[in-house]
Amino acid sequence: MKVENLLNEIREANLSYLILAQNMLRADRAEALVRLGLSEEVARIIDQLTAGQLLKIAASNMLMCRFRFDDSLVWNLLLSHTRGAENAQAAGMHAAILMTGNAIEAVV
């Protein structure tokens, strides 16, 4: 991928991510904070961004979102290499518990 294309894609990803975050925060703040793993302070800033400000921030060369679950166990559970529906469900629950536990750390 050419650098120019890459930067364009980063901008697009940033913009959709910021708009999604803003919509989530406006629809249900409490749930959005947990789903996004965001602090109240940053949430307040994102909530109040104007369209112009959103575009400006999205145009950064850095991605504004990042991988939240830096634990290979979570990824393996989500891929669930296990056999049988029951095991897959258990793996799904296990991943959910790890991810929601992680949400607490991110918020504090």
Binding site: L33, V34, L38, E40, I97, T100, G101, A103, I104, V107
Partner: peptide
């Protein structure tokens, strides 16, 4: 225990953030 643990994790993160 598994279902309760998922719920309580959600409860605690919601409780701390809002």
């Amino acid at each position: 225990n598994i279902h309760s643990s998922l719920y309580i994790n959600l409860f605690q993160s919601l409780n701390r953030s809002s």
